[in-house]
Simulated assay, not measured.
Amino acid sequence: MAIRRAKQKQQVIEKLTSVAPPGETFIACVHCETGPSPWLNGLFDEIPFLGLIVALTRRFYFITLTNTTVVVNSANRFTNRPGDVVCSFPRNAFPVQRVKRGRVWSSMYVQLPTGGKPTRLNVNRYWRDEFDSLMTVVPAAIPAQATPAAAPQTPAV
């Protein structure tokens, strides 16, 4: 079971190298999980049955940014080893709906082909540097927030 981030990234790259075209450069790799906010795990400890249900419904993924694509592959729930490729998107068409960058847990909503509505993916602070690298391809996918127009200033006489 890989615990260190470098070892997990190495395992993902080894897994994807077999299916990636020659010359593909791996830029960033982020581990994430689906489901409600991980902050709610403390509340679920009070109701063990509910906590078990939520834990079993979570899915784990690795999102890898390469020079041409963004690849999403599954991760094993217990060992964190990378699994099969779930989907792949061209780098300029990564379907992110929203991104919320938090201090400990960041989240983004990605439209995966397996679901009807966007899937919430939670990213831990441990993966912050890689998450920031991944987010370099997102601004084109997320409409810029409107900024209020500055009030016209009259010159002082």
Results as ranks from 00 to 15, higher is better:
residue 43 L to Y: 15
residue 11 Q to T: 05
residue 141 A to Y: 08
residue 55 A to S: 14
residue 5 R to P: 00
residue 20 A to K: 06
residue 74 S to F: 03
residue 58 R to L: 03
residue 66 T to C: 06
residue 118 P to M: 08
residue 60 F to H: 14
residue 90 P to A: 12
residue 142 I to T: 14
residue 21 P to N: 07
residue 123 V to G: 06
residue 9 K to Q: 11
residue 3 I to V: 09
residue 59 R to C: 14
residue 89 F to R: 02
residue 111 Q to F: 00
residue 54 V to G: 06
residue 9 K to C: 11
residue 143 P to S: 12
residue 56 L to I: 09
residue 138 V to A: 08
residue 80 N to C: 06
residue 28 A to P: 03
residue 21 P to A: 13
residue 130 E to Q: 15
residue 71 V to S: 06
residue 137 V to A: 10
residue 53 I to C: 05
residue 101 R to A: 10
residue 14 E to P: 03
residue 72 V to Y: 03
residue 46 E to S: 13
residue 30 V to H: 07
residue 50 L to W: 13
residue 8 Q to H: 04
residue 47 I to Q: 09
residue 51 G to E: 01
residue 111 Q to W: 05
residue 55 A to H: 12
residue 77 R to W: 02
residue 44 F to C: 09
residue 39 W to G: 10
residue 114 T to Q: 14
residue 118 P to T: 04
residue 155 P to A: 09
residue 66 T to N: 01
residue 141 A to P: 00
residue 90 P to T: 08
residue 151 A to C: 06
residue 151 A to S: 11
residue 37 S to G: 04
residue 11 Q to F: 12
residue 14 E to S: 11
residue 121 L to Y: 04
residue 106 S to P: 08
residue 68 T to S: 15
residue 48 P to Q: 08
residue 123 V to A: 08
residue 80 N to D: 10
residue 74 S to T: 15
residue 116 G to D: 09
residue 145 Q to A: 15
residue 18 S to E: 14
residue 26 F to A: 04
residue 76 N to P: 00
residue 154 T to Q: 12
residue 109 Y to L: 10
residue 126 Y to N: 12
residue 88 S to V: 09
residue 55 A to E: 13
residue 129 D to P: 11
residue 50 L to C: 09
residue 117 K to P: 00
residue 117 K to F: 06
residue 96 V to N: 01
residue 131 F to E: 03
residue 56 L to V: 09
residue 12 V to H: 03
residue 113 P to A: 00
residue 82 P to A: 05
residue 96 V to P: 07
residue 87 C to G: 03
residue 68 T to V: 11
residue 132 D to H: 13
residue 153 Q to G: 02
residue 7 K to F: 05
residue 84 D to K: 11
residue 58 R to G: 01
residue 20 A to V: 04
residue 146 A to D: 01
residue 139 P to W: 07
residue 75 A to F: 02
residue 97 Q to N: 13
residue 123 V to W: 01
residue 55 A to Y: 15
residue 28 A to T: 05
residue 19 V to E: 12
residue 63 I to H: 01
residue 88 S to G: 08
residue 76 N to A: 10
residue 130 E to F: 01
residue 88 S to C: 13
residue 7 K to E: 14
residue 13 I to M: 05
residue 53 I to F: 01
residue 112 L to A: 09
residue 111 Q to V: 06
residue 147 T to V: 14
residue 65 L to Q: 13
residue 37 S to C: 10
residue 132 D to L: 11
residue 153 Q to I: 11
residue 95 P to Q: 10
residue 131 F to S: 06
residue 108 M to D: 07
residue 59 R to T: 11
residue 52 L to R: 07
residue 12 V to Q: 02
residue 151 A to M: 09
residue 69 T to W: 05
